[in-house]
């Protein structure tokens, strides 16, 4: 069954090359605690970035800041050369985000969930089959396990016409070995098609070309606690 992936017009190279996410001098704070500062990286089309860091180092806060959910940060985030907030609307138009919460409605079936994300009937069936949910297409998500619900969310990555920028928070969590392999293959395929992936993960991910960004390297030079000690 040779699936015809290129239904949409082929974008010219100029618009693909420009779809890059540039982060410079980014500092995020949460509850008065400075998580990191001076963060620098650029996510070019066809490349991937893995954000690492201990729990509580600010990975989720960084992700929420990148998708524009959190707004108290300094530094610049630019999509297609356009800094936030003007660039945010354009970035969201080409963003596929899977957060800590799967974004799958428990009252709907996997098929209805994918239909809600704009997928056709047969694309959704194939995507669900690829994530190993064959036969569960019409079961209410509330009856599926947490792992299966997560796979319904990940099925969005297997839909054709997927947005170029993927931002995934801990995508490999709660996935078995075959699930991880399939996801890595799909991410590599997405990168080859000129898309870009930004993900957080504790375990190594074999996708190429991969840039690893560790938040520990950008921890605040003078943590506020030390400032406290200096005053004492």
């Amino acid at each position: 069954m040779a699936s015809e992936l290129s239904k949409s017009p082929v974008p010219d190279a100029q618009s693909v090359r420009e779809q890059s996410l540039a982060v410079s001098g980014l500092a995020c704070e949460r509850d008065g605690r400075l998580l990191f500062e001076g963060l620098e990286f650029t996510l070019a089309p066809g490349a991937a970035v893995q954000v690492e860091g201990a729990n509580g180092a600010g990975k989720s806060t960084l992700i929420r800041t990148l998708i524009g959910s959190a707004s108290d940060f300094t530094g610049t985030i630019a999509w297609q050369g356009l800094a936030f907030p003007r660039g945010l609307a354009a970035m969201r138009a080409s963003l596929l985000y899977i957060g800590h919460y799967a974004g799958v409605r428990r009252g709907l079936t996997p098929l209805e969930n994918l239909a809600w994300y704009g997928a056709g009937q047969d694309d959704a069936m194939r995507a669900l089959e690829l994530v190993g949910l064959y036969g569960f297409e019409d079961v209410l998500c509330q009856q599926l396990s947490a792992g299966q619900n997560r796979r319904v969310a990940l099925a969005r990555l297997y839909l054709p016409d997927s947005p170029p920028l993927w931002i995934l928070d801990e995508p490999l969590a709660a996935l078995d070995v075959t699930g991880v392999a399939g996801l890595e293959t799909q991410m590599n395929c997405h990168l080859r098609r000129g898309g870009s992936v930004l993900l957080t993960s504790h375990q190594p991910v074999n996708i190429a070309p991969l840039q690893r960004v560790n938040l520990a390297d950008f921890s605040p030079r003078m943590a506020v606690e030390e400032e406290l000690h200096r005053a004492v």
């Binding site: 290129s6 017009p9 082929v10 138009a93 080409s94 098609r193 898309g195």
Partner: peptide
């Protein structure tokens, strides 16, 4: 699977 640059331009999803 036929894989060729298939990314659609940044039109709202």
């Amino acid at each position: 699977r036929i894989a060729e640059p298939v990314l659609r331009p940044a039109v709202p999803a």
